[in-house]
Each structure stands twice: as structure tokens, then as C-alpha cells.
């Protein structure tokens, strides 16, 4: 099956409690937070992963993200379910961008609503840390000096 990288992949389930998207379009963080607001919740936690321009002494010109979309969506759903088993998460809205990103762009946005702030902080951190480990998405650094490297966690 050809992967649909040139358009958004959107999925709602659990009566709209979970929104997931892998997209080539810029991520609107205000939309993410708005979509998880709930009168049953006293906390909304938002995490944004953004493109860092300076790493040590090297300068990033841009990043290129690639996803194995079908599996990434499956894995994201599994990790959100795992998170909801551990904390009383009301709603999750998550978007990951693919394609070409410039410094300052949002690569991933996660908004989570919970009844109280402590569980919101913990759930958002847990989910983001797991995503870094198992969701099949990769980034390539296009350095300002013209060289390029695929990024891997043990590098």
C-alpha cells in the first residue's frame, strides 16, 4: 500500500477523545489545546517538539522527517492507550509533521487534558518519551555546511 505522505492522516475514535494526525502541513498548537479542553478537566498540558537551530557547535539549516505512516499511526494509538491505562486522561490530541521543516517549526505537538495537573504532566512526559523510542519516524539533519546526517538516538 503506498504511504499517503502528501496529505494528513486523521483519525478519531473513542467518541472524539483521541485525535491523531501525521501531516505535511504546519501544526497549530492553539488548535491542539482547544480540542482537548473539557469541563471535566482542571488541566491541559501541551508539549511541542520544535526544530533546534544550534546543536553544540553545529548549525541546522533544516530537518527532513520521514514516517512509516501505517505503523506510526498504529504505534501512536497503542502508546496513547497505554498512557490512558496509567493516568486518568480525558482527551489527547497529537500531531506529528513530516517532510521539510525549518528551524523553529513544530515537529510534534501533544495536548492532554486531565482532572488534575500532576497526572497531566506525568502522562504527557510518559507519552512523549515512549514516542521517541518506538514510533517509526526518522529525521535527517541538513546542516548549514551542506552535509546531511540521519539522526539516531545512540549517535
Amino acid at each position: 500500500m503506498p504511504s499517503k505522505t502528501d496529505s494528513s492522516t486523521e483519525n478519531d475514535n473513542d467518541d472524539g477523545q483521541i485525535q491523531l494526525r501525521i501531516t505535511r502541513e504546519p501544526i497549530d498548537d492553539a488548535d491542539l489545546t482547544k480540542s482537548v479542553r473539557s469541563n471535566r478537566c482542571g488541566a491541559v498540558v501541551l508539549f511541542l517538539g520544535t526544530v533546534r537551530e544550534i546543536t553544540g557547535e553545529k548549525k541546522t539549516a533544516s530537518l527532513e522527517y520521514e514516517a512509516y505512516e501505517e505503523m506510526a499511526m498504529t504505534e501512536l494509538r497503542r502508546l496513547i492507550e497505554l498512557t490512558r491505562q496509567k493516568w486518568p486522561v480525558e482527551k489527547v490530541s497529537l500531531a506529528h509533521r513530516v517532510g521539510h521543516l525549518d528551524p523553529g517549526d513544530i515537529a510534534i505537538g501533544i495536548a492532554i487534558s486531565t482532572p488534575h495537573r500532576q497526572e497531566g504532566f506525568e502522562a504527557a512526559r510518559f507519552l512523549m518519551d515512549r514516542i521517541k523510542e518506538t514510533v517509526p519516524i526518522w529525521k535527517k539533519e541538513n546542516w548549514a555546511d551542506g552535509s546531511a546526517d540521519w539522526v539516531h538516538p545512540e549517535d
Binding site: 517538539g49 512509516y68 506529528h96 510534534i108 521517541k132 523510542e133 519516524i137 540521519w150 539516531h152
Partner: peptide
């Protein structure tokens, strides 16, 4: 099968 290097999303 799908085969790939360690992931680096986010």
C-alpha cells in the same frame, strides 16, 4: 516485513 534503523521522531 518492514526494516529500519532506530527511530528519531519528535
Amino acid at each position: 516485513l518492514a526494516c529500519f534503523p532506530p527511530v528519531s521522531g519528535g
